[in-house]
């Protein structure tokens, strides 16, 4: 039997996770969601729908997609397809983070809860920090981490929604660039040629294809641009050599 040292941070993983997230990670989500709150307010979205979207969808790309499709008047199928595809990147995030925190082999209900709370910020930290955290403490640590940034995001969205009215008129439009810019920079943080190419192809194709059809333009543009970026970026070649 092992005992923890008196100041062992992993004896209280919830507290340690909260403290780790309470700095820059929470601030980043706060400001990112401030932009989302301001954007939905500008689009005349009801505040409870906005907060509900943060709680239920909880993924910046999917939230932006939800807002965009709702604003352009897309239907149920368009919304389902758009959020589904915008959330695709959550699959690799979940697939790569759960094995790092799971102590059981089979997925349990805790895994679904963790997956619902997972954000790119938590995912990146799980990849970076798991090695230094005892396995038995990881789920508590990263759940606390996730809940902290989640709470910060909710506050940020509320501040953005209501606070934007008190800003000078000249400052309101610039705030609306915050969220898409933040997400573009997050994508650029992933240093992989195929990822960069996919971003460029998607940026070139999607706006035009979505002018033709919101749902089909999004689906076909994303699949086509992503596949093109993957192939030209050496996705197959890279694996063949590894």
């Amino acid at each position: 039997m092992t005992t923890s040292p008196p100041n062992d941070p992993w004896s209280r993983p919830w507290r340690t996770g909260f403290k780790a997230a309470a700095g820059v990670p929470a601030l980043g989500l706060f400001f990112a969601l401030t932009g989302y709150g301001a954007m939905t307010q500008a689009g005349d979205m009801d505040v409870w729908v906005m907060l509900g979207s943060v709680v239920l969808i909880w993924s910046m790309p999917a939230l932006m997609t939800f807002s965009e499709v709702a604003v352009v008047g897309g239907g149920i199928w368009a919304m389902f397809a758009a959020v589904l595809f915008a959330n695709l990147r959550n699959i690799p995030m979940i697939v790569t983070s759960l094995p790092l925190i799971r102590t059981e082999r089979r997925p349990g209900w805790q895994d679904f809860l963790f997956a619902q709370l997972l954000s790119p910020t938590t995912w990146l930290h799980s990849l970076m920090d798991s090695d230094r955290i005892p396995l038995k403490s990881r789920r508590s640590y990263f759940t606390a981490f996730s809940l902290t940034v989640f709470a910060s995001a909710l506050v940020g969205a509320t501040v953005g929604y209501f606070g934007v009215e008190y800003l000078p008129a000249e400052l309101r439009p610039p705030l609306l660039i915050l969220t898409p810019l933040y997400l573009l920079l997050i994508i650029l943080s992933v240093r992989r040629l195929s990822g960069y190419l996919s971003l460029v192809f998607g940026a070139a194709a999607l706006p035009y294809l979505m002018a033709w059809s919101v749902e089909w333009g999004l689906a076909l543009g994303g699949l086509g641009a992503g596949t093109l970026g993957f192939l030209i970026g050496g996705g197959l070649r890279r694996k063949a050599s590894s």
Binding site: F85, P180, S198, G202, K239
Partner: peptide, 22 residues
């Protein structure tokens, strides 16, 4: 490769939507 392809499609989608929003 399948894992990487999913990531590429996700980045194309998200990037395209963000550029469109801007």
């Amino acid at each position: 490769p399948l894992f990487d392809w999913f990531a590429c499609v996700g980045q194309a989608l998200v990037g395209g939507l963000m550029v469109r929003a801007i």
